[in-house]
């Protein structure tokens, strides 16, 4: 997925950018560059989370991700600001017809800042090949919750498999110290195989909590019992926080579990969230 290749004429190349900053006790969106296919709502304040936190929905106006799309999204949360950025719904990754589609997310979270980036699970259609890489630089005094995942869907019911999923989350300090690196590389056949590395699970999700505050992994797990997913949490390297893994029968279960897990994570950080409509 890394070599030079001629992109199709219909490929979408887009770089979006958002910057949040604190002013007058509220977090405000101070810079936005949102080209097609990205779309955002106006930020609003629900009065939940850290004081003055702004909530914003991120959407796709293209109906999904397609072959040769190369999308990137830069998000900065300035010191002292608090933002909750979430997708409106799951994003479909369509058949990439032998090519692949890529989404690169770059996050920078400053001192004392707070960020939730909650993405609904990708829906991988048959023959979809997707690369999703996220790079986060986090100040030691910031807190971040990341939520993402993937599930499969075969609309024609022909037992089609996605081609490949290449997923990376890399977290560094401002001094470039590598705090954690989470990389998955899975073929659709292995994903679906009952005897494969996921034992036939149809959906996967991850919630990563980056913070220096001491957290209870068991408390996070307990909140997800009865959700129809297998959930387990553990400490990250370098005492950087916690990671929660979700495995479920399909993306729908994962989407619900991710929503619950994000709210549980926010509560653990002392910043409980109000429910958000999707």
């Amino acid at each position: 997925m890394n070599g030079p290749v001629a992109l199709s004429r219909r490929a979408t190349l887009a770089e979006a950018r958002l910057v949040f900053a604190e002013a007058g006790g509220r977090t405000r969106l101070t810079l936005q560059h949102i080209p097609y296919p990205f779309h955002i709502t106006r930020p609003f304040h629900l009065g939940d989370g850290p004081a003055g936190m702004a909530t914003l929905y991120l959407q796709s106006s293209s109906g999904g991700i397609y072959r040769d799309d190369r999308l990137s999204f830069d998000l900065e949360v300035k010191p002292g600001a608090a933002a909750h950025v979430t997708t409106q719904a799951s994003t479909i990754v369509h058949d990439t017809k032998g090519g692949w589609a890529g989404l690169d997310i770059r996050l920078r979270v400053g001192k004392g800042a707070f960020l939730i980036l909650a993405q609904d699970p990708l829906v991988l259609f048959p023959e979809a090949a997707m690369r999703s890489h996220l790079d986060l630089v986090i100040d030691p005094e910031a807190s971040v919750i990341l939520a993402d995942g993937a599930g499969t869907h075969d609309p024609m019911g022909k037992a089609g498999r996605f081609a490949r999923l290449d997923w990376k989350t890399c977290v560094r300090s401002p001094a470039e110290d590598l705090l954690m690196l989470d990389c998955w590389r899975v073929d659709g056949q292995d994903f679906a195989d009952q005897d494969g590395p996921l034992h036939g699970q149809g959906g996967v999700g991850t919630v990563t909590i980056l913070t220096r505050k001491p957290l209870d992994a068991r408390g996070l797990e307990a909140g997800l019992r009865g959700m129809g997913c297998q959930a387990a949490a553990s400490a990250l390297p370098h005492a950087a926080g916690l990671v929660l893994r979700l495995l479920g029968p399909d993306g729908g279960f994962i989407a619900s579990a991710l929503d619950t897990a994000v709210r549980a994570a926010a509560a653990l950080l002392g910043s409980p969230l109000a429910p958000r409509r999707k």
Binding site: P197, H199, A232, S234
Partner: peptide, 18 residues
């Protein structure tokens, strides 16, 4: 760059083992 796993079930088992 080739580093990457697909054994999320192993991760889950390791976490539950705690």
């Amino acid at each position: 760059d080739d580093l990457g796993t697909a054994t999320l079930m192993v991760d889950w088992c390791s976490m539950r083992h705690e």
